[in-house]
């Protein structure tokens, strides 16, 4: 397994957000973490990244327990994190945003350069000097992914990539995820948009009230409308 999470518990102050969460992502796999807002999807990704102050449990990445490491150490091991609210550096240009993400190349992970990112997102290449704050939502979503790719991750944590985008851009986003998969990246994405997740994922887990309620292949989920309706209610 590329990434293996077990018995993960997380807290915000007195609030117990995640209990006993378990997840696996295999090499080269795209796994979707589905659930409604507030179910604990983002907290799961943030916990893996060490962005939640209080967490316990085992998080094993490429055979190494990272549950006590700090955020930047986790990132340097090859875990890339793309936050749901994009968090573009609005005062920095496109190129400078990419520069912040730059890390040395890593064995066993696709290597990215600025030009390679621009070939994946041709739009960005045409606005290298533009300030992050002057970009549309869709462009910012591309930039935040490109910025994380510059760190040459072997696994990408993608938090709600389709949120707030026009249906047309969402379709483009699906293509991007598939392109990254072809490069050999593993992806764990959180989504509420089942329609979108269905197109790109190999497997799915469903989270509700901080607990994993279902894990299986996409086909198993499709075959189990009871689960789908209970937690996703499409």
């Amino acid at each position: 397994m590329k990434l293996s999470v077990s018995q993960l518990d997380s807290f915000y102050g007195p609030a117990h957000i995640l209990s006993d969460v378990a997840l696996d992502v295999g090499a080269g796999e795209v796994v979707a973490l589905l659930g409604r807002n507030g179910a604990g999807k983002s907290t799961t990704l943030r916990s893996i990244m060490g962005l939640v102050p209080q967490r316990t449990g085992r998080i094993v990445f490429e055979g190494r327990d990272i549950s006590t490491l700090q955020t930047h150490e986790i990132a340097r091991l090859g875990l890339g994190y793309v936050p749901e609210d994009r968090r573009i550096f609005t005062e920095l240009t496109v190129e400078e945003n990419l520069m912040v993400g730059r890390q040395p190349p890593r064995k066993g992970a696709p290597a990215w350069t600025r030009d390679k990112v621009f070939s994946l997102f041709p739009n960005l290449g045409e606005m290298r000097g533009r300030l992050g704050g002057r970009m549309s939502g869709g462009e910012q979503q591309m930039l935040t992914i490109g910025r994380t790719l510059m760190g040459n991750p072997s696994l990408l944590l993608l938090d709600e990539p389709s949120e707030g985008l026009a249906p047309k851009i969402v379709e483009e986003m699906a293509e991007v995820v598939l392109a990254m998969k072809r490069e050999g990246l593993s992806v764990l994405l959180s989504e509420q948009n089942l329609h979108f997740a269905r197109k790109i994922s190999d497997r799915a887990s469903i989270i509700e009230k901080g607990r994993i309620r279902f894990s299986g292949t996409m086909a198993e989920l499709e075959a189990n409308p009871g689960i789908r309706d209970a937690y996703l209610a499409v």
């Binding site: 990244m49 955020t71 930047h72 150490e73 990132a75 994190y81 936050p83 912040v100 993400g101 760190g151």
Partner: peptide, 9 residues
């Protein structure tokens, strides 16, 4: 936090 998530100490 975002800077840290990109691997900067």
């Amino acid at each position: 936090d975002m800077v840290a998530a990109l691997g900067v100490n």
